[in-house]
Amino acid sequence: MSSKTAKSSKADKGDPEEMWDLRLYTAGQTPKSMAAIKNLKRICEQHLPGRYNIEVIDLMANPRLAKDDQIVAIPTLVRKLPDPLRRIVGDLSDEARTLVGLQLRRHQESESA
């Protein structure tokens, strides 16, 4: 974990223009899904302006992807890039935890510490 963190923080530092590839899995137009999409967009605009890409996948339309991408909980946010792959479960309403999960907050924390 520590080495991974070090690597990713280095990557964040070294390449601030790195593109973030995010994928959000939902199942139908449920309130949880809608909330997740809304929250994700807000967080990205705030922390990753201009360098993020969000793909929303509705498993009701593409059930096969649930198996292929190992999705159990809904909504699930997967950070495909930058490495390593991260999964965040929930409607992203807890912004602090979302940032930690996406390793956006950890970077700042390690700087302040």
Binding site: P63, A66, A73, S93
Partner: peptide, 23 residues
């Protein structure tokens, strides 16, 4: 399911499992 890969950030359900099971 790998706990280290999963962070919980709010309300969720296991619809993904249902979808897979159903499929």
């Amino acid at each position: 399911i790998e706990r280290s890969e999963i962070a919980e950030t709010g309300d969720f359900d296991l619809e993904g499992l249902f979808v897979r099971l159903n499929m």
